[in-house]
Write a protein that binds this DNA or RNA. Structure first.
Lengths: 197, 197
DNA sequence: CCCTTTCGCATACCGTCGGTATGTGAAAGT
DNA sequence: ACTTTCACATACCGACGGTATGCGAAAGGG
């Protein structure tokens, strides 16, 4: 009787690589960490890495997907705690800003992501995990008559970009609480312009 | 009498490296182009490159600064053609979107820039060349009473991020004219919310 | 229970990359 | 005319991402 089945061992190694990759990519950036160092920190070898992932970029892709799903989870949780569409929407935006202020999240999701995977692939991941909820929220706002009927696709990109950049800026702020409050205020004000009269 | 003085020759080589770097970085990305290939395309050697720039990243930095100054030039020109602060502002935003839709500009300025130089340094360059004008325009709007008094720093980041992401999205659009129009419309509507009543 | 196959991973190695140390020849200074 | 400067070219290095191969234990079959 083996202490660990093969499936268990395999999954454990994979998770270790993901955790280690996430930690190192977040702290020193994708280009700043070599595979030799990464596998040593994970306690395995390059053979193990290439058994689980096709390339360094593929490992990064898996890490990025994991990070995005975590952020999306926090956003959805915050939104679902509210009742009406408008409050769900603003709560989700604020939760996204709060979650994305984490420096670990930023470097992987916002800085290195587009450059490593290319903008198109990064956008596809972002759409599948994060921007999808934003689009759904905007559609719900239009359908419930809270905001005026209008194309949601450009709105989604504008708001997504605005919040991404705002999160990066907030992370460097010397007065995070005030800047966060002012950012949410400005964002809410701008969103308010879309409301039906 | 020399055909070329040393200063002339030096500047010519430097410009050739900048042009070649810009072309290659734009088409295949920073990580996708090697220095050997770059210097061969420029008709020089690595010795020449490292005589003019401290590193590959330093060459990219110079290229990025040049690209940003061109974009900023177009934005300022469009803004200065208008009279009142509000129209200058919207004209500048539209000019930025139009200029940043160029794929050559995008990859260097919006995708690779933050990852190669780090967000902080990229932000400093952006602030010096591009976002500075945005801040000035917003301050002018507040001082002239067009929009309500409010902190401009978070507004600048929100709008800058929104336009950057919108430009990337527009570049992949299958109906660029319509999407551009809708984006400008949504942007203008959101900005309208900031107007004094 | 043994024998075979599978497979998760380690080892050894390769081409290429960014970066550097040194050489060189022509322009510039005196 | 002689020296110095300097804008490069050449040759080389360690480190990197990636691959080909070997190995040993778990899984499967009789």
């Amino acid at each position: 009787m083996p202490d660990l089945t093969r499936r268990q061992q395999r999954e454990q190694t994979r998770q270790t690589l993901l955790r280690t990759g996430r930690r190192l990519f977040a702290t020193r950036g994708y280009a700043g960490v070599g595979l030799a160092e990464l596998v040593q920190a994970a306690g395995v070898t390059k053979g193990a890495l290439y058994h689980h992932f096709d390339s360094k970029a593929a490992l990064f892709h898996a890490v990025l997907a994991q990070v995005q799903q975590e952020v999306a989870g926090r956003v959805v949780a915050a939104a679902e705690a509210e009742g009406d569409p408008w409050t769900r929407f603003t709560a989700g935006c604020e939760a996204f800003l709060a979650a994305s202020t984490d420096p670990e999240v930023q470097r992987i999701m916002l800085v290195d992501g587009p450059a490593v995977l290319g903008w198109a692939q990064w956008r596809a991941l972002d759409e599948a995990n994060s921007a999808r909820h934003l689009t759904e929220a905007l559609v719900a706002l239009v359908e419930s008559g809270v905001i005026a009927p209008q194309p949601v696709a450009p709105l989604t990109r504008l708001l997504s970009g605005a919040m991404n950049e705002a999160a990066l800026w907030l992370a460097t702020s010397t007065r995070p609480a005030e800047d966060m409050a002012e950012t949410v205020a400005a964002l809410t004000r701008m969103l308010g312009a879309l409301r039906s009269r």
